[in-house]
Deep mutational scan, measured.
Amino acid sequence: KLLSSIEQACDICRLKKLKCSKEKPKCAKCLKNNWECRYSPKTKRSPLTRAHLTEVESRLERLE
């Protein structure tokens, strides 16, 4: 599967780190437990900047 097509777990399953069936409108866990089942939009991760990478590398060197 391509990364862009990976389905996201519902908010509660993601928060509780449960295996989500990803069914809509309610996944199996939410249906069974009568929880409100919501699927928040995916958040875009910002790409690493060179400055951040350099900072992490220098912190790693100090720890070694």
Rank of each mutant, 00 (worst) to 15 (best):
K19F: 00
K17I: 05
Q8A: 11
T54F: 07
K19D: 03
P25L: 05
S21H: 02
L63E: 03
E7G: 09
K22P: 04
L60Q: 04
K44N: 11
R45T: 04
L2W: 12
K44W: 10
K22E: 04
L53C: 07
E61H: 12
H52S: 06
L63R: 08
E36A: 13
N34C: 15
K1Y: 14
K44C: 11
C20A: 03
A9H: 06
K19A: 09
H52D: 01
E7T: 09
A28E: 11
S5H: 10
P47C: 05
E23L: 09
W35R: 11
R14S: 04
R62C: 09
C27Q: 02
A28R: 14
E64D: 08
K32Q: 12
I6D: 08
C30N: 06
E64I: 11
L48H: 02
Y39R: 07
R45Y: 01
K19S: 06
S21V: 02
P41I: 06
T43R: 10
C20H: 02
P25W: 00
C10M: 04
C30G: 05
S58Q: 13
K19R: 14
E55I: 09
Y39D: 00
K26P: 03
E23R: 09
N33V: 08
A9P: 03
L48D: 01
R59F: 00
L63T: 01
C10N: 06
A9K: 02
L48T: 03
A9V: 08
Q8Y: 08
W35K: 11
S21Q: 02
P41E: 11
L31T: 10
L48F: 05
K42L: 12
W35V: 15
K1L: 13
W35H: 13
A9G: 10
K44F: 08
R38V: 13
L15I: 10
P47T: 02
H52P: 00
K19P: 06
T49K: 03
C10V: 02
Q8P: 09
S58V: 14
Y39T: 08
L18A: 15
K32L: 10
A51K: 11
C13Q: 00
C13D: 00
K1P: 15
E61N: 10
S4H: 11
K24M: 13
L15W: 13
Q8T: 08
I12P: 12
S21I: 03
R50W: 03
E36N: 15
R62E: 05
E55S: 14
A51L: 12
T43G: 11
Y39C: 01
N34D: 12
T54K: 06
S46C: 01
K1F: 13
R62P: 08
P25N: 07
L18P: 07
K16V: 01
C20V: 00
V56P: 02
R62M: 15
C20E: 04
L48W: 06
E55M: 14
R38M: 15
I6T: 11
N34Q: 14
W35N: 14
E64R: 08
P25M: 05
D11C: 02
C30W: 05
S21K: 00
P47S: 07
R45D: 01
I6Y: 11
E36V: 14
W35M: 13
R38A: 13
K22S: 03
A9D: 03
P25E: 08
L31F: 14
S4M: 14
E55Q: 10
R45W: 01
E7Y: 04
T43C: 14
I12R: 11
K32M: 13
K24I: 14
E57H: 07
L31C: 12
P25H: 02
L18E: 02
E57S: 06
E36I: 09
K17G: 03
E57Q: 06
C13G: 01
P25S: 07
R62V: 14
L15T: 11
R59I: 03
C27L: 01
K16L: 02
L18V: 03
P47G: 06
R38Q: 12
L15G: 14
S46P: 11
W35A: 15
N33H: 12
R59W: 02
C13F: 00
R62Y: 07
L31G: 14
S46V: 02
K32T: 15
K42Y: 15
R50Y: 05
Q8E: 03
L18Q: 08
S58N: 12
R38D: 13
R62G: 06
R45H: 03
K16N: 06
N33T: 10
Y39K: 00
K32C: 09
T54W: 05
K19E: 03
L53H: 02
L48Q: 04
A28Y: 11
E7D: 12
C20I: 06
E23G: 12
C30T: 06
K42S: 09
I12F: 15
L48R: 00
P41D: 08
P47K: 08
L48K: 06
K1I: 04
T43M: 11
A51D: 06
T54N: 09
K42D: 04
L53T: 02
T49D: 01
P41R: 05
V56E: 04
E23C: 13
E57W: 05
R62F: 11
K29W: 00
V56C: 14
L63P: 02
H52L: 06
C13T: 01
L31Q: 11
L48C: 05
K42T: 10
R14K: 10
K17R: 08
S58Y: 15
I6Q: 13
L60K: 09
L15M: 12
L53W: 04
E23K: 12
I6R: 04
E7W: 11
C10S: 01
T43A: 14
S5C: 11
L53A: 02
L15D: 12
P47Y: 07
K24W: 15
L15H: 10
C27S: 08
K26W: 12
L15K: 09
L15V: 12
R50M: 05
K44M: 13
R59S: 07
P25F: 04
C13R: 08
K24H: 14
Y39N: 01
E57Y: 05
E64F: 04
N33D: 09
K22D: 04
S58M: 12
H52V: 01
C13I: 06
C13S: 01
L3Q: 07
L15R: 07
P25Y: 01
K22Y: 04
L63V: 07
D11A: 02
C37S: 03
T43L: 13
E64A: 06
L63I: 15
L31S: 13
R14H: 07
C20L: 05
E61M: 13
K22R: 11
Q8K: 10
I12Q: 11
I12T: 10
K32P: 03
K29L: 09
K26E: 11
K42V: 09
E7I: 11
L3H: 08
E61K: 10
K44D: 04
K16S: 00
S5E: 13
K16H: 00
E23M: 13
S58H: 15
L53D: 00
Q8M: 10
R62H: 10
L18M: 15
S5M: 12
A9N: 03
K16M: 00
K32I: 11
E7A: 08
C10E: 08
R38S: 14
S4I: 13
T49M: 07
K16C: 06
R50L: 07
E55A: 14
R50F: 02
R14P: 05
E23Y: 03
S4G: 07
K32Y: 09
E55D: 14
K1C: 15
I12W: 14
L31W: 15
S46K: 02
K24Q: 14
C30M: 05
A28V: 12
K24C: 11
I12M: 08
S5I: 12
K19L: 05
S58D: 11
E36F: 11
K22A: 03
L2N: 13
A51M: 12
R45Q: 08
C20P: 02
V56D: 06
S40I: 06
S46A: 07
E57M: 00
R59L: 05
L18F: 03
P47I: 01
S40G: 09
C27T: 02
K19Y: 01
L60C: 13
C20Q: 04
T43I: 15
H52Q: 05
R45E: 06
H52Y: 13
Y39F: 09
K1N: 15
K29A: 04
S40E: 04
T54L: 07
L3W: 10
C37G: 07
R45M: 04
S40C: 05
I12C: 10
C27Y: 02
E57I: 00
E64C: 10
N33R: 11
E57N: 00
L3C: 11
S5V: 08
T54G: 07
A51I: 12
R45P: 03
K17E: 02
K42G: 09
K32A: 11
R38T: 15
K16E: 02
S40M: 07
E55F: 10
V56Y: 08
A28F: 09
A28K: 12
K16I: 00
C30Q: 01
S46T: 09
K29G: 06
P47E: 06
C37M: 03
N34V: 10
D11Q: 09
N34G: 11
L31M: 13
R62W: 08
E64T: 14
V56A: 00
A28C: 12
K19T: 07
K44G: 03
A28L: 10
R45S: 01
